[in-house]
């Protein structure tokens, strides 16, 4: 079973603001980390590999620095990583991102199962996994709680609103793992040491490595949505500021609770 896990490097903090005067984005700190939801996807893949053999490849799309999250995946137990990095992919929306990932997977080939995380903490769209599955022509399920391989097929449980559905899907297929479904393992120091100096672990691909090399299908050009404008969130026009001693503050809250008949 060859498993691909799609991961993403996200900002370490969500402290991004718009300067209300100049309209320029201000981002505090340049730190970044692996999208926390991807850890559950990786753990799912690594457990399947332990039970059934095969390989786990981590794939990410991002700037050269995103190599770091692939290395982290390798330290956790992935066999190797693929970084898709090209300025021509800049400004990609959901459709263009999904297309880029699917183009990469088509070039890589030889996969049985693709696992994505539930969503990223920077985009929060939770749509890339499903669109990628559509581009690849594969069935997919989201919100997957658990899965195992039985007779070459994927048996899984997923949440559909208040329903828990158990089903079986032929491979290859795509699943998006839910959050909190397992305890992701920690990166191993031994694996880190072993990986040092092994330049073959992380492969870097650009548009030139894809079968569809038409830059119009990628990045901003391949994105049907356009950001017209960015702006700071609106502020409440009317609000009451309470700033007194703890007792006065509490009394104010207490009065609101009474006035509005919550107590």
């Amino acid at each position: 079973m060859n498993i691909i896990v799609c991961i993403k490097q996200v900002p370490g903090s969500s402290n991004v603001k718009v300067d209300p005067v100049t309209g320029v984005l201000i981002r505090d700190g340049a730190d970044s980390k692996m999208n926390p939801y991807d850890l559950y996807a990786l753990e799912t893949a690594l457990s399947l590999k332990e039970a059934h053999g095969g390989t786990v490849t981590a794939v990410t799309m991002g700037p050269p620095a995103a190599k770091q999250v692939l290395l982290e995946a390798v330290y956790m137990g992935a066999d190797n990583g693929v970084l898709i990095s090209d300025r021509r992919f800049a400004g990609a929306d959901v459709l263009a991102t999904s297309y880029t990932l699917s183009s990469c997977l088509v070039s890589l080939g030889n996969y049985d199962l693709i696992i994505c995380g539930k969503q990223t903490t920077d985009g929060d769209t939770a749509q890339v996994g499903a669109e990628m599955a559509e581009f690849l022509g594969l069935p997919h399920y989201s919100n997957v709680q658990s899965c195992e391989i039985v007779d070459g097929k994927l048996k899984f449980k997923c949440m559909l609103g208040n329903l828990v559905m158990s089903a079986e899907m032929d491979t290859p297929c795509v699943i998006c793992a839910d959050g909190e479904i397992n305890t992701p393992r920690l990166p191993s120091y031994k694996r880190k040491k072993a990986a040092e100096g092994n330049a073959d672990l992380i492969k870097v691909l650009s548009l030139d490595d894809f079968i569809d090399k038409d830059p119009k299908h990628y990045g901003l050009s391949g994105s049907p949505t356009q950001v017209e404008k960015i702006f700071p969130p609106e502020k409440m026009s009317e609000h009451v500021v309470v700033e007194g001693t703890s007792e006065e503050n509490a009394a104010h809250i207490y009065k609101i609770l009474c006035d509005r008949k919550f107590i």
Partner: peptide, 12 residues
Amino acid sequence: AFGGNIMARIIT
């Protein structure tokens, strides 16, 4: 949008 304290107007 952009994972921060920013709103975006998006059109298709």
